[in-house]
Nucleic acid binder design. Structure first.
Lengths: 145, 145
DNA sequence: ATATAGTATACTTAAATAGTATAGATTAAT
DNA sequence: ATTAATCTATACTATTTAAGTATACTATAT
């Protein structure tokens, strides 16, 4: 039960885009510097995000990436589900046939409940929430100086 | 974000032991048959469980494994934490030094909250709860026939 | 004694993860 | 038109982790 690097980086990437929403395309080279993630890896992560329609791109010089929708409308559940490549803690949830005891399994019930709880939480958190927190944290930091 | 087979099997194994609590040592060959998990793999999983003091063993003929404590006193949080080998969704929670932005990271906060929520839930569920559910499910199944 | 069970350690295989490399397609700016 | 900045597509590689097996013990009830 560990979050993949893809999800972690993807989350930071998307919050970065949220912080620059409505400011034109953001270049990967900038995000790479700010987030300390290689451009090449960011490109990898952006493929599914683009396919899912969460980001749009502008090609050519001065091009870059932008959120496809307002930050209020993109939840962490969408990002995590997409980048983890599944919405379950346990494979038998999606494919009951892989385990002969799926129908009687007590522990499967528990993993299902847990998964549901996790995604309920993630659905309640939007990119706008995280961007807001990031802005506040940054202000606090400046005041401290 | 996926539960390891070790945790899944470990959970089933411990519920199996809970269902036979106070009935003397349970042999791996029996558990292996009931749960359809190889004896060798069960042995692997039992090493940490024994080290942690959650099970005790009786060696020799008629030997086997038993819960060290009543099922009411063993929670799923203990089992999952032990068998996953960590109590965090994200390595920077345990080792902030691996990421330079640990102190400003907004997403880290989120992963911490999520982890806390998950383990709160797992702490609320004991082996007794699951054994009880298993007994009920089994009765229902019999009535259906 | 002996067979039954757990113990310890090490090995093997397969899959997933995390990333890099290379070559190409678009397009704004000149 | 050319160029340089950017994204795109595909494929490769190395590392780690997961999952499971094998071999050789040790303890003990009968």
């Amino acid at each position: 039960m560990k979050l993949s690097t893809r999800s972690r980086y993807g989350a930071r990437l998307m919050v970065d885009l949220a912080l620059h929403y409505n400011q034109g395309p953001v270049q990967l080279s900038e995000i790479s510097k700010r987030q300390d993630i290689s451009v090449k890896y960011l490109e990898q992560i952006l493929i599914p995000l683009k396919k899912a329609g969460y980001v749009v791109t502008v090609r050519g010089p001065k091009g870059g990436y932008m959120l496809a929708d307002p930050p209020e409308e993109i939840t962490m559940a969408q990002i995590v589900e997409l980048l983890e490549g599944r919405r379950n803690l346990v494979a038998c949830m999606a494919n009951p046939e892989i385990c002969s005891r799926s129908d009687v399994c007590i522990t499967k019930n528990l993993w299902e409940e847990l998964t549901e709880m996790i995604y309920e939480k993630l659905e309640s958190i939007t990119l706008a929430d995280l961007a807001e927190k990031a802005r506040r944290k940054d202000e606090n930091r400046k005041e401290m100086e």
